[in-house]
Amino acid sequence: MTELYEQLTTYEGRPTSTSGVGKDLVNTPMIRHWCEAMGDTNPAYDGPGAVAPPTMLQAWTMGGLSGHTDRSGAYDELSALLDGAGYTSIVATDCEQEYLRPLRPGDRITFDAVIESVSPRKTTKLGTGHFVTTRMDIRADGQLAGTHRFRILKYAPAAREPKGTRPRPVINRDNAGFWEGVGRHRLLIQRCGGCGTLRLPWLPGCNDCGSPEWDTVEACGAGTVYSYVVMHHPPFPAFDPPYAVALIELAEGVRMISNVVGVPYDKVRIGMPVQLEFLRVDPELELPVFRGGEV
């Protein structure tokens, strides 16, 4: 256990508010503003006998623009400790609420909150930090009306990585001709010297007859999407997920893996006609890609 984490865990079980008081009684205007924002037209929240939307529970305990003045020091101390360690950003991740009795206009809200747990250091997509879980009991006119468990991540934002370069193709004596072709904006397919079978990617021998003899034919550039996947995760430098990776069937009948351009990732479809073009991704690299949609 790190020294910081050991210190953080001493806050587990410590109250963050004791007998906090809601700044406003439960009231009709705040309910109406909430319903307007949410687009909630439920008649249960309007008129005589109205109740507050249960999901408003936490709203009645919020400090608002002027903040809380009646908080115990524990939460602020814990926040300061995390700030000091570089975990200066905050994001809410979980909210679990249980509603025991409805809140009605006129109810006076009081609440007690306790730091339930602090997680060990975690690395997330946002950055590295600690999860802090708080549990709050909320009372209306002294009666338990609901519980509210809230988890936040206090974190150091992940540094925006410099955009990496696309991986270089591995060029060897068996496929050098293919990449020379790409350099001249020609997509070359290998043709077996023994049986005439076309093959892509390039290989030293024929899978059908075993012949090492070959020449090339140039692809006409027309193709269709034979299959595809959409990459969401994990992210790689130089790629912005989500993006589609497609298996293209060329008009000549062979298939190759490539990107479909000119079409949003979620509009790529099997059978979509595509047309070859060459994309310069950086000064040293051009790649054959396929434009979809408008063919």
Binding site: W34, A37, M38, G39, D40, N42, P43, A44, P53, P54, T55, M56, Q58, D94, C95, E96, Q97, E98, Y99, P102
Partner: peptide
Amino acid sequence: NGLVGRYITDHFGPGAVLRKVA
């Protein structure tokens, strides 16, 4: 949280009572 609650009561009607939202 409010939108999730609204989605449920929009569907089940004003007689539905939310007990827990996680």
